[in-house]
Structures are given as structure tokens and as C-alpha cells.
């Protein structure tokens, strides 16, 4: 091998391994892991019982670590077991770091769930967006691409679309289009419903307005913010969003709401509770709605 062929950046040096990957199949057997795991669990239980009897100690295991709270206000669309929709406040996918991107925020929703990603390199400002559609909500065109996790994939203008379940597609779009990276990002997405998102505040229903209901919850992976989105029951009309995020001391207040300093801009109302590290913000709707929303938030 000519050393000059390999000599480049560290990533280029290791590129031959990246390209290859493991062969198909392999010697890993999930059934064997399940059987071995069951044996280990039984052994541990038996050992634990023996130890507790010998020591005549009682161990109390708390049944719940902390109370979980539902997102404020009922969903906008009827809560029925619709196989062609997601649960409105439950993430339906897990996403890993891949292709040089790492997950940043997750937005739940009944008909689409959106994950934004940022570059894993803080010095770069690359971003990517994964949009996972409920069955029947997207039928992409585009040229066929290599499968993603064994499922059909097609090219899109900014990246890749793939069929994550029969009749259900997801897309990955990169700000700087790069199909290889988009493909790697798509491979990191797995369909796996989690638990309903918990929200650390309540919102007074009167401020949300009649006819509006919950359409999604936005959480950040770094636990730096959380927001809820509301819209009309038929999902037409504008959406309003209210949430918490870290307060920025550099932002000077230009108004006061119910005695609390606030920043009011044409698109946003931000309440800055004194002595708190968080700010309450509202977007969407008209200014009166936004003002009412930020003052209707009560941290739990």
C-alpha cells in the first residue's frame, strides 16, 4: 500500500474502515442473549433473596422515583387509538448522534414529529432536520437510494427520505446538502415510542383560548428548554407556543407585565421573573394572546 494514499486528516486515515462496515448477518444471536439474560436475572434474584434472608434485613424499594405530570391541557385532536397518527405528547422515535450531527430538540405531534440536530463540532453551524411523518402523510418522489436500515429510500432536494414503516416516511434535510451524511443520520433513527413528555409548568386554559388544544411539545436534549404548542382542533389557523428557556441577562427588559420585567418584540413576548434563571416566552398569535400566555404560566 502506498502510504501517500492514506495520509490525510485523521478521518481520511481511518476512511477504509468507515467504508467497509461489518459483513451481513454475523454471529450475534438475540435469542441467545435473551436466554442468557433470563438466566442472569434468575441467578441475581436468587442471590438477592438468599442475602436478604441471611441478613434478615428489609429493603424498601420505592415504586416510583418522582411523580410524572401530563402536558398542560388536552390534545387538540381527539385522543383515539389512531394507528395512522402518533400520540401527541409522546416521542415516537429515538435518534442518535450520526453523520457529524447530534440531536438538539424534539418536537412531538400527531401527524409529524420533528427532530432538529446541530453539528457535533461547536465551531460549525451546520444543522439538520429530521421530520418523521405518520403513515400516509408523505409519499416522496426522487431517485432510489441505498436502503436505510433495510427499508426503501429516495433522494430529496436537501437529503434523504426513507420508509421507516410500511406507508410511513421520514426525511432528513441538511442545511448544507450532503446525501451521505443525511443517509447516516437517517440510519440513527429508530421507531420506538417513549413515555409522554413531562412539562414543568401549567398554563391557564383561559389564556390558551377556546377551541385551541395541544398539538405538540418541544424539548431540548440538553434540558435547557421546554415548550408546548397549541392550535385549533382542526389544526387550521395559527399556532401559539409557550415555554421556558434560560434567561439571558444581556437582554434588557422594555416592558412590565403584572409587575414582572418583560421583553416585547414584534414576534415574541418574554417574561423575565426576577431572581429566576429561566424566562417564560410566547410566540405566535397576536400580541394580546402572547401577553396572556406568558402570565398564565405557573411553574410546578
Amino acid at each position: 500500500m502506498n502510504p501517500d494514499d492514506r495520509c490525510g486528516s485523521p478521518s481520511e486515515l481511518l476512511q477504509p474502515l468507515r467504508d467497509a462496515g461489518p459483513g451481513a448477518g454475523g454471529g450475534v444471536d438475540v435469542g441467545r442473549a435473551v436466554r442468557a439474560g433470563r438466566r442472569r436475572v434468575r441467578t441475581r434474584r436468587a442471590a438477592a433473596v438468599a442475602a436478604s434472608v441471611a441478613a434478615t434485613l428489609a429493603i424498601v424499594v420505592p415504586s416510583a422515583l418522582w411523580p410524572r405530570t401530563e402536558p398542560p391541557v388536552t390534545p387538540a385532536a381527539p385522543v383515539t387509538a389512531d394507528p395512522r397518527a402518533f400520540e401527541v405528547s409522546t416521542p415516537a422515535f429515538v435518534v442518535g448522534s450520526a453523520g457529524g450531527f447530534t440531536p438538539d430538540t424534539y418536537e412531538t405531534g400527531r401527524y409529524q414529529q420533528v427532530i432538529t440536530l446541530r453539528s457535533a463540532d461547536p465551531a460549525r453551524r451546520d444543522t439538520a432536520v429530521i421530520t418523521m411523518y405518520a403513515p400516509g402523510r408523505l409519499q416522496p418522489g426522487g431517485d432510489p437510494l441505498p436502503p436505510v436500515n433495510g427499508r426503501r429510500a429516495r433522494s430529496t432536494s436537501g437529503g434523504v427520505a426513507w420508509e421507516w414503516a410500511p406507508g410511513a416516511w421520514g426525511t432528513v434535510t441538511l442545511r448544507e446538502p450532503d446525501r451521505d451524511k443525511a443517509h447516516r443520520v437517517a440510519q440513527s433513527v429508530l421507531a420506538r415510542p417513549g413515555r409522554p413528555v413531562t412539562v414543568p409548568f401549567t398554563v391557564d386554559q383561559r389564556a390558551i383560548g377556546p377551541g385551541r388544544g395541544l398539538v405538540g411539545v418541544v424539548t431540548s436534549y440538553a434540558d435547557t428548554g421546554v415548550a408546548v404548542k397549541y392550535a385549533a382542533g382542526d389544526l387550521t389557523g395559527d399556532r401559539v407556543e409557550v415555554g421556558l428557556r434560560p434567561s439571558r441577562p444581556s437582554t434588557p427588559p422594555n416592558a412590565e407585565l403584572d409587575g414582572t420585567p418583560a421583553v416585547i418584540t414584534p414576534s415574541e413576548v418574554v417574561l423575565l421573573p426576577e431572581g429566576e434563571r429561566y424566562a417564560v416566552y410566547a410566540r405566535g398569535g397576536d400580541e394580546a394572546t402572547r401577553r396572556a400566555l406568558v402570565t398564565a404560566v405557573t411553574p410546578r
Binding site: G26, A33, G37, R38, Y221
Partner: peptide
Amino acid sequence: VQNTITRLYVRWNRAREARDLH
């Protein structure tokens, strides 16, 4: 991988609670 997924089976109840399971 075999060893890892066997350990994962034993800890599955804890693992599935993880915010980032991957």
C-alpha cells in the same frame, strides 16, 4: 455485541428509562 446485548437484557428496565437510549 453479544455480551453487550446480554447485559442490556438484564438492565433493560433501567435502560429504557434513559433519555438517550442509543
